[in-house]
Amino acid sequence: MIPPARQKPVFRFAPSPNGRLHLGHALSALINADMAKAAGGRLLLRMEDIDIGRCTPEFETAIYDDLTWLGLAWEEPVRRQSEHLDEYRAALKQLIVRGLAYPAFMTRGEVKARAAQSEEQDRPWPRDPDGAPHYPEDDRFLTDSVRRKRIASGERHGWRLDMESAIASIGTALTWAETGDGETGEIAADPAAWGDVVLWRSDAPSSYHLSVTVDDAAQGVTHVVRGLDLFHATSVHRLLQTLLGLPAPRYHHHRLILGKDGRKLSKSQGDTALAELRKAGRTSEEIRRLLGL
């Protein structure tokens, strides 16, 4: 009997076309490409363009130009999140039907104000690993009739995961396989640290947590390679994968490129774009050396 062909490892680079790529993006893209090549695998490209207000075709084209200049090649077609909203909506519906998601009516500003008021009165407020305050429990305990009336009235709302119920529903501890630049081995997931995370935003479709989980499964991604700033978010992704019956990839969270002030490079802060380095005469080989590759 001939054994089945071994599936090729699948890697992906998934930028958001809401600005120009910088050195931090170059590091992630190149590490993905290098690891895919070393493993004899495939490299996919995904545009995380759910934030329709900030993502533009011009930025998407610029990403292709930058990646080509870096010497990267990827499989077509490129997956765009904006073209798969029905898939994210279907995943959300699964969680709603099971009673694991609820409509959330408070804005981020209101949540921050509630947390600040509590902390001013020396009452600690739980915060997630990124420092954002947990969502209050108010909406989680509203009756269905109250929720329906508020939604029917047109009140703006998103959807959040009932973290306590979600964890209880799986009845087992979660882990993930990690090979990155921080902790390695079998990592214990702690999704509770994130509180009731957003699944569907009131100001944009879906959320990062839900869409990236669905995307990786839909694209058959076997190796998720991304920055250490997303290390702790993996706990939420492992929980969603388990709840939705999706496979768990291996993870590799790599070092970050920091600015002179010690913060992570950011498009919104205007950090030097790859296009500017290219205009200044830098070559892709120089970029590799600059990044320690």
Rank of each mutant, 00 (worst) to 15 (best):
P3T: 06
P9V: 09
R20H: 15
L21W: 04
G24L: 07
A26K: 02
I31P: 00
M35Q: 14
K37A: 15
G40R: 00
L43D: 10
L44A: 04
L44D: 01
L44F: 03
L45C: 08
G53R: 11
R54W: 08
A62E: 15
D65A: 15
D66V: 12
D66I: 12
L67S: 12
G71C: 05
W74T: 08
E76M: 13
E83H: 14
H84K: 14
L85N: 03
E87A: 14
Y88P: 09
A91G: 08
P103E: 08
A104Y: 14
M106S: 13
M106N: 00
R108D: 11
S118T: 07
Q121A: 15
D130F: 09
G131L: 04
P133M: 06
H134N: 02
Y135A: 14
Y135T: 12
F141H: 15
D144A: 15
S145V: 14
K149A: 15
G154L: 08
E155L: 06
R160W: 03
R160Y: 01
M163F: 03
A168M: 01
L174I: 05
E178C: 07
E178F: 01
G185K: 10
A193D: 01
A193P: 04
A193G: 10
A193Y: 00
V197H: 03
L199I: 04
A204H: 13
A218E: 09
Q219C: 07
T222P: 01
V225P: 07
L230Q: 11
A233V: 12
T234I: 01
T234D: 04
L239K: 12
Q241C: 01
P247Y: 02
R255D: 06
I257D: 02
K264P: 01
S266V: 05
K267F: 08
S268D: 03
R282V: 09
T283Y: 04
L290R: 10
L291R: 03
